[in-house]
Simulated assay, not measured.
Amino acid sequence: MLKRTRRLAAGAPVVLAAFGVAMAASSTPRPEIDRRAEAVRTLTKGDLGAKGFAAITNRMDPSQLAMALRHDPGERQPALYGLTPGWESLTLAGRPRLEFGATGLDAMKLNAATPNASQYLRVAAPFVFKPATPEDRRRALRCLTQGVYYEAALEPTAGQEAVAQVILNRVRDPNYANTICGVVFEGAERTTGCQFSFTCDGALSQAPVGWAWERAKRVAERALAGNVAAAVGTATHYHADYVHPWWSPTLNKLTQIGAHIFYRWKGAYGEPAAFSQRYSGREPLIDEARFSRPRIQIATAAEADKALAEAAANGEGVMRTVEINGQTRVVGVASLGGRRQATPDDIAAINQRLSVFEGPAPATPPAPVVVAPGVTPMAVEEVGRPGS
């Protein structure tokens, strides 16, 4: 018993020392990296996939998210059209030429090869629809119904809801008008600026089919009542799958519904916090008779190519058609607005004019020879020779 007591007494300093080390370790501040790792683990619940990534980015403000995306290697995608990587953010060469191919199948393949950026899908908030007057309500409902009908009459219900969502997202986007009719008819007064092709290609002159119009109207009413198309989130752009517009690589592709592919802005501009513009409540009066008159009528793809060339020289836009499964389909308005791209002939003419200033100064011309009456020019030449 005495030996056991002495043995415990001898070991007491070691136990006390270990206990002291443990106490000291527990009182030492944890490294910052440990606290961050624990916060990430708690927030994502151990899921480091797309769902966990969304849980983290949803807590960021726009500036934090923009900084994070700037250093995200996943954002570095191969450039298209043979242009320098990064052209979609800044280009000095203008818009690349669109080549749809003979059938539109090339564009379909290219669109299908572009992966969905589902990690950037953010569900938009319900639209707050507060029109100022009953007339404003009527105008807004009609414009939204027109957008759904003329853009997606034969699309599935989810596709029609997605188109309505894009229109309402734009109303809240500071880059667009703050009314529903303003967004739908934005640029319709110019052939080069139609945001929705039906507002400038004469489609409004065609009376809508009754049952299809009522279906589109129901979709519009649900959207104005707060229905949200979660599948497209904060999308502000879309196009048909048989075309590949120049702007598609500049945005995040979210998903495809029916024949339409939907996109959102890249970075902070596509986050819900960026959709801060308030709906004005006062809808503009649309002169539908004016916008029902087609500005451009093109029957075939060959005529479209010819018109494109002519319009490019004038800085205008025209309708473009493609042949798909033996049928001619309208692609939409090719926007060539702003300063047009110089043609090779333009550049040659400019260089020729500039060469006048770059070349040597012309020599002083000799004084004119005055010929006396009755003397021939040959005689003057002979007199002027040395030794004559």
Score class of each variant (00 low, 15 high):
L254V: 06
G267W: 09
W247E: 06
L224H: 00
K266H: 06
A259P: 01
R295E: 00
G233K: 01
A289T: 13
A259I: 08
G267F: 04
W246E: 15
P272M: 09
P284K: 03
S292D: 02
S292H: 03
R290G: 04
A273S: 14
A225D: 06
I257F: 06
D241Q: 15
R295N: 06
I261F: 11
S280W: 02
G226R: 05
A289P: 04
R278S: 13
H244D: 09
W265H: 15
S276T: 12
H239L: 04
Y279R: 05
R278W: 07
R264E: 04
L285P: 00
G258P: 02
P249K: 01
Y269H: 14
R278A: 10
I261N: 12
Y269P: 09
R264P: 03
A229R: 05
A274F: 13
K266N: 12
D287V: 03
Y279K: 05
G267I: 04
N227Q: 15
A231Y: 01
P249M: 06
E288C: 05
A268V: 04
F291N: 04
A268E: 14
D241I: 13
A273N: 07
V232A: 11
L285Y: 09
H237C: 04
Y279F: 10
I261V: 15
R290L: 12
G270V: 06
Y279A: 01
F291V: 09
E288P: 03
H237W: 13
P272R: 11
S248F: 07
P249W: 08
Q277T: 04
V228Y: 07
A229I: 01
N252E: 10
L224D: 00
S292C: 03
R295K: 13
T236H: 10
F262N: 03
F291C: 05
R278I: 08
Y238C: 07
A274Q: 09
W247Q: 10
P245G: 05
P245Y: 08
D241T: 09
L285F: 12
H239P: 01
P284M: 00
Y263W: 11
A229M: 02
R264M: 07
D287S: 06
S292Q: 02
P284F: 01
S280L: 13
A230L: 10
T255G: 07
R264S: 15
V243S: 14
